[in-house]
Amino acid sequence: MALLEVHDLVVEFPTRRGVLTAVDEISLHIDEGEVLGVVGESGAGKSMTGNAIIGLLEPPGRIARGEILLDGRRIDNLPYDQMRTIRGKEIGAIFQDPLTSLNPLYTVGEQLVETIQTHTDMTPTQARARALELLIEVGIPAPERRVDQYPHQFSGGMRQRVVIALALCVNPRLIVADEPTTALDVSIQAQIIALLKRLCSEHGTAVMLVTHDMGVIAETADRVAVMYAGRIAEVGPVKQVVKRARHPYTHGLMGSIPVIGHDADRLTQIEGAMPRLTDIPTGCAFNPRCPQATDRCLRDRPEPMPTEDGQVACWLFEKEAAHV
């Protein structure tokens, strides 16, 4: 059984001009210890899916349909206080901007100790010892001194290390990492990703890595889910998706990555922009930008179809899917 299962999840935003569907019938699963990359452009519904899983959709956003299961137990309809005991303990979270993720008025140690004591019965002394251990583990130099410092005394990269320590402090089984490196310098991004990858494999923690950076995904993820306009376009093992993408949208995404040693004058790009949630075209949402769109793509919406090692939501693969 998968650690986390999401079935037909629909996330809606009621607005004055009608209900917007930010996430439209998404199904995915993450196995124990697995890293699932979730990619897509801004507004594709990646972060929204992550927020729905940790139960922190910002109002008025709400889960309209579908279910989320952790270890086969439904967690999407739990009351706030029960979900609270899962957050941090079973499912940790890392957000995009380390500069704003930490409360400026408390020392790093206070925030670690507070989190540890919320989920365990440790005494303050034990919790502090554990906090020091965590700071060493995430590679913060001079932890005995650093533990009593405030977030503003840390650089961006160091703060993200603290955030990782906070997310990991009671050994959750899953971490939802929402663009954990986007706000960092490129040189630090690689360090942080390596750290996250190492810690999670050491602890056997599964990761849902939400990003728009295909490079990060290619390096880190076991499997990839590609999202487009609130739906999943393609899911598969990372090698498959990066090297032999099926969905034309994934193709386009891969074409936009520069290849070292490959002298191209221009990077290919996908024409047009992702549709706004208010006017998603009928049929396949990608059809206005798709070079291979047919009449059918304009008319009928493709559902994710199984392939030998994943799923793809594109009519081009209907025959292939039928043979699986």
Binding site: E58, R87, D97, T100, L102, T115
Partner: peptide, 17 residues
Amino acid sequence: RTDYIKFARARGLSNRA
């Protein structure tokens, strides 16, 4: 609305805290 409040919730802290 700030990130650190969202992160505090994500760490599972009680409403009171």
